[in-house]
Computed example of a mutant assay.
Amino acid sequence: MYYSAQHSSPVGTLTLASDGSSLVGLWLQGQKYFGGTVAQAMAESPRLPVFNAAKEWLDKYFSGQKPAIAELPLAPYGSEFRRAVWEILCSIPYGEVITYGEIAKEMAARMHRAHMSAQAVGGAVGHNPISIIIPCHRVVGSNGSLTGYAGGIEKKIRLLEHEGADLSKLVLPAKGTAL
């Protein structure tokens, strides 16, 4: 059984999902792949302790604090590869960005391979089921393009600005589905 709750934020209404003890999803309104990792209907249950903890975490984050991801019980559903990529995302410091290529190099090293596709990493980043908390908004293209955010480029920019990221070297993608 899965449960859901709503939470208002500066980037719009957020939908949280839980298996009853851990957070399994957090999606922005209108986000691509919304609810994609939860195969069953969710029962509204806004008072679950995990939702209270997640809402408190989000309130701290949006008030300018830097709460630790480890404060929350997270259980994102995905393949071993995707979970490894999401683990790397959790290590990106507030206000900093990393490229898909840099994550691909780290994944290649972890998997004892000579090379890893940045596109495969992009697929894993794009399907991150716990937006904001697992900070996929901190990933950019190798040329500094702000491409690839399932929640939309404008929300990615707002989150990076909120964190104090230096956006001066980052650019909007010229075309693509991320716009």
Rank of each mutant, 00 (worst) to 15 (best):
V11M: 10
E96S: 08
Y77A: 12
H7G: 03
I132R: 12
M107W: 06
I133G: 11
G152E: 14
A68N: 11
I88R: 15
H7P: 02
C90Y: 00
V97T: 15
A68G: 05
Y33C: 03
P93A: 07
G30Y: 03
L23H: 07
I103V: 07
E80A: 10
L172I: 01
V139Q: 00
V85F: 02
G148Q: 11
F62W: 10
P73G: 01
G122S: 12
A174Y: 05
I98G: 00
E44K: 06
A84P: 07
G164P: 06
A75H: 10
A178R: 04
K105W: 12
K175Q: 14
P46N: 15
K155P: 02
E154Y: 07
I132P: 10
M116D: 06
F34W: 11
G20D: 07
Y100R: 10
H7A: 15
R113Y: 11
A53C: 04
F34I: 07
A17Y: 11
L146H: 09
I103S: 00
A5D: 02
H162G: 02
M1H: 12
G36L: 04
G36K: 08
S142R: 13
E96D: 02
P67A: 03
G144Q: 09
L159R: 04
R47K: 11
E44V: 05
G64N: 05
E106S: 09
E96R: 13
G64W: 08
L16E: 05
V171F: 03
S18N: 11
V125F: 01
C90R: 10
I134H: 02
A54I: 08
C136D: 15
I153N: 04
Q31L: 03
P73R: 09
P93D: 02
N52M: 14
G126A: 05
D19P: 08
L58N: 06
S117Q: 08
T13A: 14
P76G: 09
S79H: 02
L74S: 08
A150K: 10
E102H: 10
F51I: 00
Y33D: 11
I153A: 06
D19T: 02
N128L: 09
A104F: 00
A53W: 04
T177D: 13
H137V: 10
S45T: 13
R47A: 14
S91Q: 15
A17S: 13
P73K: 10
A75D: 12
I103A: 03
I103P: 01
L179R: 14
T13D: 12
G148Y: 08
P10D: 01
E87H: 14
G25K: 08
Y77W: 13
N143C: 08
M116N: 04
A70H: 05
S45A: 14
S45R: 10
T99S: 15
A120T: 07
A178K: 05
V139R: 00
T13C: 10
I103K: 04
D59F: 12
E44A: 14
Y100Q: 05
T99I: 05
L172S: 07
I92P: 08
A68Y: 05
S21T: 15
T37R: 15
Y77Q: 08
M1W: 12
K32N: 15
Q6L: 14
